[in-house]
């Protein structure tokens, strides 16, 4: 399977709501919003310790999410996310501002690391519900959180039935909400190929989840 190549396209920060009461997991806003990723990488390379915090808060949650959805294993995903961020730290002195988006570069690195893990035959599988951290949105009731967890878990099970490239494309398009051209740049394929992969992936997912509508809270069709 070809490695994922060219970089293009930004990804905005998806800031989460406030921290959950148990404090186990914290959704993060994107660090210092006044600075670009490029600027933060340059600051990091110049010894600014706060830049690492901002970059971690801004990029690591999405890196972890992609790895988790592609690998289907929380522990493996954490290892991949940590390694991807490590590569960011090491790359910082050589980063050329304006030539690519840091976030897109990181997506590419993350997907390549996921591929490497799969090639090495590391354990992968469906995400277990008890592996999933508590939903961090305090505005949602406990039943809503449970429903989110069940739907997320069901989606993960269905995702793991997709071919690798379809799963990557669907995760980037519909969970990370990247544009098709951005995904095409990350996966080094045409926009038409991205559209084809996501369309086929969605059809498979819909079929896989159709039998669980009532179980997942879709009693009204």
């Amino acid at each position: 399977m070809a490695r994922i190549g060219t970089i293009s396209g930004p990804k905005g920060v998806r800031g989460g709501p406030a921290a959950p009461p148990d404090g186990r997991n914290q959704p993060r806003e994107g660090g210092d919003a006044s600075l670009s990723d490029d600027a933060l990488v340059a600051l990091f390379a110049n010894g600014d310790e706060q830049a690492a915090r901002h970059l971690t808060a801004r990029l690591a949650p999405r890196t972890l999410a992609v790895a988790r959805r592609v690998l289907g294993d929380r522990d493996e995903a954490e290892d991949v996310a940590q390694e991807a961020m490590m590569r960011l730290w090491r790359m910082a002195p050589d980063w050329q501002p304006g030539q690519a988006q840091v976030s897109t570069w990181l997506y590419r690195v993350t997907l390549n690391l996921c591929l490497d893990r799969k090639r090495r035959g590391k354990r992968v599988g469906a995400l277990r519900l008890d592996d999933v951290p508590d939903p961090p949105d305090p505005g949602r009731t406990a039943p809503e959180r449970m429903q989110d967890g069940a739907r997320s878990d069901a989606l993960q099970s269905a995702l793991m039935t997709l071919p690798e490239r379809q799963r990557q494309a669907v995760v980037l398009r519909h969970i990370e909400e990247l544009s098709n051209p951005e995904i095409a740049g990350i996966m080094e394929i045409s926009v038409e190929a991205v559209e084809s992969l996501t369309a086929r992936g969605k059809r498979t997912l819909a079929a896989a989840l159709a039998g669980r509508r009532e179980e997942l809270g879709y009693s009204d069709g």
């Binding site: 997991n25 949650p61 959805r69 954490e78 939903p135 989606l155 997912l205």
Partner: peptide
């Protein structure tokens, strides 16, 4: 499907402090 994607986004928003 979008309801599932949205649920996944909410679940994935967390970041383990140890990581």
């Amino acid at each position: 499907l979008e309801a599932h994607f949205a649920a996944a986004r909410r679940v994935d928003a967390g970041m383990p402090l140890a990581l």
